[in-house]
């Protein structure tokens, strides 16, 4: 049997519509052989976690540029925990000040990718860490 493809949910929580990064990442992960589900814009943490559950994903990539990450990301993490989805790898991309990175990692985010991160680095990180968790 062929190895299951890595399944990734790319989501944009909050009110922001700047989806250039989310769409580039979605396409790059697809080109790298992963199954990618893009939720579309303006998803609440509840909708994101629900989609992650339904789609049985290995990884969630949250794209946030609006400065709302310290409110939205902990909500997603809390809901994942409540649904017993702690095995899902969560990564965050966007405009995140350095100071907030350790705080996000403390609530369970595996990695934060600032502007300028190379796609290959993101792909490699997701491959390695999903495998470790499997």
């Amino acid at each position: 049997m062929a190895e299951r493809k890595i399944r990734v949910l790319i989501a944009k929580p909050g009110l922001d519509g700047h989806d250039r990064g989310a769409k580039v990442i979605a396409r790059a992960l697809r080109d790298a052989g992963m199954e990618v589900i893009y939720t579309g814009l303006r998803q609440t943490p509840e909708q994101i976690v629900q989609a992650a559950l339904q789609e049985d994903v290995d990884c969630i990539g949250l794209s946030i540029l609006s400065g709302a990450h310290m409110v939205l990301v902990p909500q997603v993490m809390k809901l994942l925990h409540e649904k017993g989805l702690d095995h899902i790898l969560v990564v965050v991309g966007g405009i995140i000040p350095d100071e907030d990175v350790p705080k996000l990692k403390q609530v369970g985010v595996a990695e934060v990718f600032p502007p300028g991160t190379l796609l290959d680095d993101i792909i490699r990180f997701i491959r390695e860490h999903v495998r470790q968790r499997a």
């Binding site: 909050g14 009110l15 922001d16 609006s66 400065g67 709302a68 409110v71 939205l72």
Partner: peptide, 22 residues
């Protein structure tokens, strides 16, 4: 800010985390 750009008041739950940010 984003809530204003989206026609959402600052006290609307949808504005959580975004009031005055951008």
């Amino acid at each position: 800010d984003l809530p204003t750009l989206m026609g959402v008041d600052s006290d609307d739950p949808a504005a959580a985390g975004e009031v005055g940010k951008c």
